[in-house]
């Protein structure tokens, strides 16, 4: 087989998939605008995503903050900059690690959850049944999930930021002999609204991508339990890749000012 033909076909298929996802995302985001807006579905999705993610996001954040404190201390010691630990740690967390880790954890939980749920509905004809009952599945199933995840993600990340900084603080105070109040004061004087804000904007974008990938793969799944399994896997992989790629793009935009 001609390798160029294979690469061409692959590229073409990828572009077609991205196009289909974009149309899906557009329709999913705006379909509620022509009414009705299913508020119950929205709130239940928001609650599921928010509350259920918090324990796992919190655990991830506290260990990340703690490990990061040790690493930054060890590294900065080499050029006697260890007093800047609070500043470096907090900026790393709010700009990069808080949003990144939280999004990857939520991708693992919610993106796969949405793909599995919608996939099961698809292969058992429940989505088709919904259409015949005069309810648009995009308005009822997709829009509430996309909106809820996009809106909830910044709150989740805010919590992750706080817990991550707390994790760093605990290591600094109890293991590295920092003075607790000074540590907090340093962070407070150093961090800007842009630092935190850019992380929260990232969080919103990540939330959007997580929901779109989860819903898209679930909605399009085919072929019984095996198809649902494949949709779940694709959703997690696709949202992780989308998170990391968009993270780079957004970071390069944010550091430009």
């Amino acid at each position: 087989m001609n390798p160029f033909a294979a690469i061409g076909r692959g590229t073409f298929a990828l572009l077609a998939e991205i196009g289909a996802m974009s149309l899906f995302a557009l329709r999913g985001t705006f379909s509620w605008a022509s009414g009705p807006f299913y508020a119950r579905e929205f709130f239940s999705a928001a609650l599921r995503i928010g509350f259920n993610s918090l324990p796992v996001v919190g655990l991830t954040a506290i260990f990340t903050g703690a490990a990061l404190a040790l690493n930054i201390y060890d590294g900065s010691l080499r050029f006697n900059a260890e007093t800047f630990l609070p500043q470096i740690l907090s900026v790393s967390i709010v700009r990069e690690l808080g949003p990144g880790f939280a999004a990857l954890m939520v991708a693992g939980r919610s993106s796969s959850g949405m793909a599995a749920e919608l996939g099961a509905m698809r292969v058992s004809d429940q989505i088709d049944a919904m259409s015949t009952l005069a309810v648009d599945p995009f308005k009822y199933l997709i829009s509430p999930r996309i909106l809820a995840t996009t809106i909830m993600m910044p709150f989740i990340v805010l919590v992750a930021d706080l817990i991550g900084i707390l994790g760093g603080w605990m290591v600094a105070v109890f293991a590295l002999d920092f003075e607790g109040a000074t540590y907090i004061r340093n962070i407070d004087q150093f961090l800007t609204a842009e630092d935190v804000g850019s992380g929260l904007i990232k969080a919103g974008v990540f939330g959007f991508l997580i929901a779109v990938m989860g819903c898209y793969h679930g909605y399009k799944s085919r072929g019984g339990a095996q198809g649902v399994g494949a949709a779940t896997r694709s959703a997690v992989v696709a949202s992780a890749v989308a998170i990391l790629a968009s993270n780079y793009v957004m970071t390069s935009l944010f550091v430009d000012f």
Partner: peptide
């Protein structure tokens, strides 16, 4: 057009009466 699907296609996240009333509540 009302449709009875081959595998029934009941919504498994709702109980029986909510299934039957789905169109009335959410569609109308």
């Amino acid at each position: 057009i009302g449709m009875l699907f081959q595998g029934s296609a009941l919504f498994d996240s709702y109980n029986v009466w909510e299934n039957v009333a789905f169109r009335l509540i959410h569609g109308e």
